[in-house]
């Protein structure tokens, strides 16, 4: 069993755009983050999108 104890850490379940943004904000605020994603890569549904509404910006 891999045992990890880090004081001041947060676990985020789900590595889509929501989880990634929360992870970045927490890391920027001085916390260590475990970003748990059940699939092979983070990105979630947004990585499948081509453009975003309403400005049609690139989504990646």
């Amino acid at each position: 069993m891999l045992d990890t104890k880090k004081v001041g850490s947060v676990m985020i379940v789900g590595g889509g755009v929501t989880g990634m943004q929360a992870a970045l904000d927490l890391a920027d605020s001085g916390y260590y983050v475990y970003l748990v994603e059940k699939s092979g890569a983070i990105g979630g549904a947004m990585a499948q999108l081509d453009k975003t509404f309403p400005t049609n910006d690139c989504s990646l």
Partner: peptide, 17 residues
């Protein structure tokens, strides 16, 4: 498969839809 145990202060659930 590897079992992992984490000690964390808080949890954020963001599993999407």
């Amino acid at each position: 498969p590897e079992d992992i145990s984490l000690k964390v202060g808080a949890v954020i659930m963001s599993p999407g839809f």
